[in-house]
Design a protein around this nucleic acid. Structure first.
Lengths: 335, 335
DNA sequence: TTGTATGCGTTATCAG
DNA sequence: CTGATAACGCATACAA
């Protein structure tokens, strides 16, 4: 059953040629007599030969594999990115090794060690909050890396959202509807993208001469509670911006909680075009991140660097978010 | 920069021992003088040596990698499974190569070829609909496989839901609420799990002496339309069961579409505990699949078979679904 | 145009 | 207890 598979040598023997000739035939070498090539191809088919990528990797020093390390896999933002990465990698003939670090620096270290030992050619990484850039640089040990969604250190290729602009845009939109008191909700406010989005929100509020109110929490269960509390404490608070898909979920719940206690309309703009955005009433206006571009660009950048001849200059992609206007922001319903 | 990394030989030289001694030290061989071990460990630390898994794989004939092939990655059911698989694999010291086939048999063939050439030790596969089992068996070429969510051929390890029971349970629940006309909605009715769930639904309806009505479509946009149409065509239709997270989404939309046209209450039970289930009004009663168990069991089964001494008997896990009762089925609201 | 020999980094074997 | 050696499968340099 587990009969060991045929090697180039088996093919060579059957075709009555040398091993290197078979190798050349496989790799499309030009120096081949058609007749010989024919014999080799037949031998390959007959034996069901397939090259051993492990041996190729050892010999060539390249694995044709990229390591992908994300905080979580099931979070819709990341799973959409991963989906895109897998497809783009497959399309280009690369293979993906998937790992997650659960937002833990320690776990991230372990996973990077796995990638080092596996000799992957490059890495796509969304670093855990609190990562020491210099430490990560060492742990990468020279493996080319593309930072996705969060920065690593200046001088590394990355693909990120224009976080500030995105949050500003949302805030502006709410301000345009006449809301003066607008809160901003997120868990894990130490995570880079949230830091930036908070800054964007604050900038917009400051420009309008208004104060800001942050609703923060360690996790999303607490965020729901915190948002509810904020709404109760401040009856004049009528609008909230949430900074991620999870936060959006929590805020929707909080608003519903408060609504149940008495009449109270609260406008909101969510982050990420979650599927429930169009299902709830009113439909949620959201800041949509271009997840396809995240995945596509990350792979493109990495592959480019892995196959470059001369040194490619630093590549940094700053992606624009899109405001998908629905009803929750105060706009007329128009679905 | 790309200075090639130290090898066992470098470590051996620095420690003043032979290469195999270093190897034994690494693999925890018992035959080592403490003094020598000390020297080796120091050399390893000094050089920053890390074993090359590629070479190990070539030498050992095992890659410590499992291939995971799913239809899609971003579908919440699959992404939850993948998340669990990655965690369980990492915990056990295995590595995951992630691929998707987009429900295409041709794409699946290509991905299995990638896995063959990569010499992964085993595969977790959710086969594309229309797969020829014998063909897949050949394409696996002896690699141990665990089928997840959909069967492959009798005699292969698998982890699946008790689909019929799950659908029957949901149907029963609706029948218990007094609904006589209950429709069942899904796209891609050729996919195994949906076939089974349809059978379960029908069995329950037949047992109650009632006829069944299937709402089928090729994709989910059309399913939304088809469900809306069915509701309009048959004003007495007051309950729908949807067979997947995507179908649930479509049915919720359809019910909302119809509701907008006039007063009409439609009960429903969804499949998969999607996050929007608790956000819409009324909250959706759903059949919850134990995604953690899917991932965990799949890895456990596969690893067991990969590390078995003697031949392990066929392992088939049939997971039970859980009815999460909320309000959409007609039960009192109780959140 | 083709074949032979060598090495990629490990580990198992076997002799010391 | 330890060290030299061979082999895993492939691709390259070089010889023919």
């Amino acid at each position: 059953m587990r009969s060991s598979r045929p090697t180039v040598l088996d093919v060579a023997r059957l075709a009555g040629v040398g091993a290197s000739t078979v190798s050349r035939c496989l790799r499309g070498g030009p120096h081949l007599r058609p007749e010989v090539q024919e014999r080799i191809l037949r031998a390959i088919a007959e034996l069901g030969y397939e090259p051993n990528e492990v041996a190729r990797s050892l010999r060539g020093g390249r694995t044709n594999t990229i390591g992908v390390v994300f905080p979580h896999i099931a979070n819709t933002f990341f799973s959409l990115c991963i989906q895109q990465i897998e497809q783009e990698a497959t399309r280009r003939g690369w293979t993906v090794m998937l790992l997650s670090h659960q937002e833990s620096v320690a776990q991230q270290s372990k996973q990077l060690a796995v990638l080092r030992r596996s000799r992957v050619d490059g890495v796509i990484l969304t670093p855990a909050p609190g990562s020491d850039p210099e430490q990560v640089r060492k742990e990468l040990h020279g493996m080319p890396v593309v930072a996705l969604d969060r920065p690593l250190w200046t001088g590394v290729d990355h693909v990120m959202l224009r976080n500030r602009e995105a949050a500003e845009m949302a805030t502006q939109h709410l301000l345009g509807h006449g809301y003066g008191e607008i809160a901003c909700a997120t868990a894990s406010p130490e995570i880079y993208s949230f830091v930036e989005r908070i800054a964007g929100y604050r900038a917009a509020m400051a420009r309008a001469g208004l104060g800001d109110e942050l609703i923060l929490a360690e996790d999303y269960t607490r965020l729901r509670a915190a948002a509810g509390e904020a709404l109760r404490r401040r009856p004049t608070l009528r609008a909230i911006i949430s900074l991620s898909n999870m936060a959006t979920f929590a805020v929707v719940q909080a608003i519903r909680d408060v609504k149940h206690e008495g009449e109270r309309e609260v406008a909101m703009i969510g982050f990420d075009d979650v599927d429930f955005a169009t299902l709830v009433e009113p439909a949620i206006t959201v800041v949509r991140q271009p997840t396809e571009a995240f995945g596509h660009e990350a792979v493109a950048l990495l592959v480019q660097r892995l196959t470059e001849e001369a040194a490619t200059p630093l590549q940094q992609r700053l992606l624009a978010a899109e405001l998908v206007v629905r009803a929750s922001c105060g706009c007329a319903y128009r679905d």
